[in-house]
Amino acid sequence: MSKKRMDQIEQRIARIKEALGQIGPMRPGSLTRQYRNPKERVGAYWQISYTRQMKSHTEYVRSEWQPDIRKQITTYKRFTRLIEQWIDLSIEHSKLRMQIAKQERSG
């Protein structure tokens, strides 16, 4: 059973690597619409905020770039989900490998 699960994990990791190879432009953050006068909702503009290397960043985004930036943020979220899955699978794979080695020594 454990060797079968290891094969499944290895196949899933291979699919994750393939998906990561196809990822395009990305950037972290959240894109929000802000207003120069929030009470009256006047003077709208787009702003991206993110933290990178323990530093907070905020940038203005032109309206025409808003769809592209939103797509890059979505791509970044997909990237981080794939990386997290890879890490979880790698941990499980390592534990199974040690468990199988232990069984082979004692069996």
Rank of each mutant, 00 (worst) to 15 (best):
K3T: 07
R5H: 09
M6C: 12
M6D: 02
Q8Y: 14
I9W: 10
I9Q: 06
Q11V: 03
I13K: 10
I13P: 04
I13V: 15
I13S: 05
E18Y: 03
L20S: 12
G21F: 09
G21R: 12
Q22G: 10
G24Y: 11
G24M: 11
P28A: 09
S30T: 12
S30L: 06
Q34T: 13
K39C: 01
E40D: 09
R41T: 03
R41G: 08
G43Q: 08
S49H: 06
R52G: 00
R52T: 08
K55E: 07
T58N: 13
E59G: 04
E59N: 09
Y60H: 09
V61C: 02
S63Q: 11
Q66V: 03
Q66S: 02
P67G: 01
D68T: 06
R70C: 02
K71D: 04
Q72A: 03
I73R: 00
T74V: 11
K77Y: 02
T80K: 13
R81S: 12
R81F: 03
L82C: 01
I83P: 07
E84Y: 03
Q85A: 14
I87Q: 13
L89V: 11
L89D: 06
H93D: 11
H93M: 10
S94Y: 12
L96T: 06
M98C: 09
M98Y: 02
Q99T: 10
I100A: 03
A101V: 00
K102L: 15
K102G: 02
E104R: 15
E104T: 07
